[in-house]
Computed example of a mutant assay.
Amino acid sequence: MDGILPLWKPKGFTSHDCVMIIRRLLKTKKVGHTGTLDPEVEGVLLICIGQATKIVPYLTDTKKTYEAEVMLGKTTETEDAYGKTIEEVEVTNPPTEEDIENMLQSFTGTITQVPPMYSAVKVNGRKLYEYARENIPVERPKRQVTIYEITRLPQVIQKHDSFRVQVVCSKGTYIRTLCVDMGKTLGYPAHMSDLTRTQTGPFTKKNTVTFDMIETAVENNTQKQLLEPIMKGLNHLDRLNVDEDTKKRILYGQKLAKPKEIVKQNPFVVLCDQELLAIYQIHPEKPDLIKPVRVFQG
């Protein structure tokens, strides 16, 4: 089995839990996920099966879309609703619609984040949450991320101390930290009280399957029908089309002369008659050559 399984991860499971469950259900060991979701978060989690595991880094690099609730008046150790309270104040002068709108605009584009202490970012070979659990102070590395879009979402029940947003962002963005920083801009301690990932790359909620759907498909021996083609996870890369003779060389993993056809992105996908063959890149030391990064057939 080779392909992408777009799972709707339920709350209460780690991303690793999901990989283990799918390995058991599909009876295959070559399974990997593309971007961790915290146990309390539900949403789109792309699971790569078989040869699709070769594209995990390229799917991780894609844009992600989230829906989050920002709760004003309290900040926590973990920056979400599950951590110990650090600071709490009453929201006596809630921000206006205009205040929130202006604040959201200020977070669009490239921003600098300091990752939360309770995160898997590594410093000196150890994860930040390991330092946090041992109460060891450590300087956290600043990182730049991109917020492509951030918009206000309607709330079913209007609350003076919270609001909902939709965020389209680059990899590495911590929505928890974004919520805290948005609160600071509005003059209040804040945390992320709810989060759902609604899209990863081209995969949206409507594309996803649940564990129940996978179990039913296995019972009916139709599990392969749940998989999306590997190429769907690579649509954001440029394409180079080759002939049959070149195809043979690619399947042997050979370096090739840099093609005359202009490829704007690096790396890029190589196809022959719509068949996905490999991912190539311009040779880092010999710019007149291209070399394989991943080969999918043969």
Rank of each mutant, 00 (worst) to 15 (best):
D181F: 01
E285N: 11
D273K: 13
T210N: 14
G183S: 09
T222Y: 11
I214C: 03
I230L: 09
P202A: 00
G183E: 00
N221W: 13
L178T: 02
L234C: 06
I250F: 03
Q265N: 10
L240H: 09
A217L: 06
Q199Y: 03
D181H: 05
I262L: 12
T173D: 02
R249N: 10
T216M: 15
A190Y: 05
I230F: 14
Q223Y: 10
P284I: 06
T198W: 08
I250C: 05
D238E: 10
P229E: 15
N220S: 15
R197F: 06
N221D: 13
I250W: 02
Q199N: 07
V242H: 00
V218D: 03
L178Q: 05
M213E: 15
V269G: 01
E219D: 15
V168H: 01
L271C: 09
H283E: 14
Q265W: 03
T198M: 12
V180S: 03
A190R: 04
G172R: 12
Y280R: 11
N220G: 05
L237T: 11
V209G: 05
T216C: 06
T177H: 00
L195C: 04
V218L: 09
T208D: 07
F203C: 01
I230M: 04
T216D: 14
M192T: 01
D245A: 06
H191R: 02
E275Q: 13
L178E: 04
D212K: 07
E261H: 10
P287Y: 12
G253Q: 10
K224M: 11
G233I: 12
L277W: 08
L234Q: 07
Y174T: 06
G183Q: 01
D243Q: 05
H191D: 01
K184D: 02
T246N: 05
G183L: 02
T196W: 02
M192G: 00
L277A: 07
D273C: 13
I262G: 07
K248L: 08
D273N: 15
T173H: 06
R176F: 09
L178A: 03
L276N: 01
I282H: 12
T177G: 00
L276D: 03
